[in-house]
Amino acid sequence: MIAATKFFRVDDLWVQVYNSEAEMAQDVAQIAQEYLQNILERQQTAAVLLATGNSQLKFLDALIALGGIDWSQVILFHLDEYLGITADHAASFRCYMREKVEKRVSPQQFHYIEGDALQPVAECDRYTKLLQAQPIDLCCLGVGENGHLAFNDPEVANFQDPYSVKLVKLDTANRQQQVNTGHFPNLDSVPQYAFTVTLPLICSAKKILCLAPEKRKSQVVKEILQGSISTKYPASILRQQSQATLFLDTNSASLL
């Protein structure tokens, strides 16, 4: 197993720093693999909540390559989806998950948020019932450049959210990030609204693995770890989650 170069704790949150994103992804994959193996030794199924985004690519590839997980016992969910976008749209999170995960591992079930549902509020209710049908054993996610988790941007994040899934308006920083990372050609093409799993649901997961590599995340990582716990940087809520670990590379940890 690849060892982190630094370990430390900020409030209840464990933080691990690696020499490179590749080393980070490989170690997190090993942690996730061993955790899921242990879960499946004790129970018949495991429920896992996954994220999209560039921070997840190397990790998902490494996890799948490791093998050793009986994916037929795993029920998968994802964190968010754009409103009004079809499942075959190149930027759809359903498309991402289908191509990068489901087709490669054949889970027992992959429950998708139907972004183009004709009744979006009813879709929130449907997905909420699916998520609440069992505890979430593992949540793997990243941090947005504005500090969001899933699509819980600062203006819509709520640490005591009464909802498990909701519709939100995306802020400009979030939408611009989608352009900068190549998911859309320009700002106007990025949907203004999206479905998101909320912060209390994320924090209910028994284990949380949060990956935040790259230099462009260095400022928000500094704010999350050294600022106050506030919806100004929604990911700061992880500092109250003893079951969570934040994984960084030397680039994203450079301002600490």
Rank of each mutant, 00 (worst) to 15 (best):
G115I: 00
A173L: 05
D12R: 10
I208F: 01
W14F: 12
Y35N: 05
A87F: 05
E23I: 00
Y127L: 02
N186I: 09
A25L: 07
L63W: 12
L79I: 01
L83T: 05
L248K: 01
F8W: 09
A122R: 11
S252R: 02
C210W: 11
C139W: 08
A46M: 00
Q219H: 05
V168F: 07
T5S: 15
L248H: 09
I136E: 14
Q30C: 03
K166N: 08
S92L: 01
L83N: 09
L130C: 05
G53R: 03
I2M: 13
P200A: 00
I85W: 05
F110I: 00
R94Y: 07
A32F: 06
Y96I: 11
A122G: 09
T86E: 12
H78W: 04
G115T: 02
T181I: 15
L170N: 09
L57D: 14
L63P: 02
I39W: 10
N251R: 13
C210S: 09
L13G: 02
Y193I: 00
E21A: 14
S228G: 13
L138S: 09
H148F: 01
S72Y: 01
G53I: 07
P120C: 06
A62F: 10
E102R: 08
S106V: 02
Q26M: 05
A253I: 00
E223I: 00
Q132D: 11
A22P: 02
R104A: 06
R104F: 03
V143C: 01
L167Q: 12
E155R: 09
L76M: 09
L248F: 03
V74I: 07
G67E: 06
A65V: 03
K169L: 05
D61R: 12
S252A: 09
A25E: 13
R104Q: 15
K206G: 10
